[in-house]
Design a protein around this nucleic acid. Sequence first.
DNA 1: GCTGAAATCGCAGGGGT
DNA 2: ACCCCTGCGATTTCAGC
Lengths: 158, 158
Amino acid sequence: MRHDHRVILDETDRRILAELQADGRQPWAELGRRVAMSASAVVERVRRLEEAGVVRGYRAVVDPAAVGLGVRALVRLKYPTGNYKPFHDLVARTPFVLEAHHVTGEDCFVLTVLARDMRHLEQLTGRLATLGSITTSVVYSSPVEGRPVPGDDETPGG
Amino acid sequence: MRHDHRVILDETDRRILAELQADGRQPWAELGRRVAMSASAVVERVRRLEEAGVVRGYRAVVDPAAVGLGVRALVRLKYPTGNYKPFHDLVARTPFVLEAHHVTGEDCFVLTVLARDMRHLEQLTGRLATLGSITTSVVYSSPVEGRPVPGDDETPGG
DNA sequence: GCTGAAATCGCAGGGGT
DNA sequence: ACCCCTGCGATTTCAGC
């Protein structure tokens, strides 16, 4: 659970990470079978990966549309000041903001937002617009989503 | 595992989803304790949530920086034509593209990209730039990340 | 990293409200 | 529709090697 320092992974570690990103709930015994190790050995490796901060946890993947949040949007925010307090306060009490990234470029922040419908999105963006100038892009579809973090040596023809 | 049609969730379902998004690997017995139900009852509910497409799976959360991918960027792509084949082909064989969203606005696509370092990012964006005009924003930090999908009635003072 | 034994869990079947 | 209990096989865990 400590630092973010680089960790050296061998081939088995990478296979374990790929497996756990594909199915985070499979039994250790099953995972052991897939990477050709005993259950106890695989558990020890996973424990070390967690300890090293490589594996940060396990999460169920929930489909927003299935729970009534059918609209997804990316909101870019041009934030005028260096006082980030109002920004943090607003996103902290707005659970529909799934992500907020501080980025280079003209737009200081990029947010990923979920909304029930366009009316709800209008309301959410209205609140965000009190912080600064925003640009909203509504997501039509996501051709790529939920890809696993690749192993650090992966370079498949490109 | 069926359609994306709306599903009606009660309070218990929402608590289950919150728990499984916080720790997707906890034993059903433990989850039952937390929502005050027997293990078998909680398993039955989770099975139904999976069946309905609300829970799409379980994934380990891997820290990209810990495996040597210390750079994250958002790449906006102004795609000139309606022929999406070259785009899909390129992202399909580029595992460092974690997400690709088709969005409204001037930029047709927004991609989330991981890279080992700036040199690697330069290489990746160079490839993407063959498809169309791009705008790259490098992520400094992510004040909000990995938030759970909120219950559909959540409106906490905001 | 492997084995082996005890505790725990997962999974079906059956039944109650 | 929803929930609980029981039984058995599989899994987890922790010891020692």
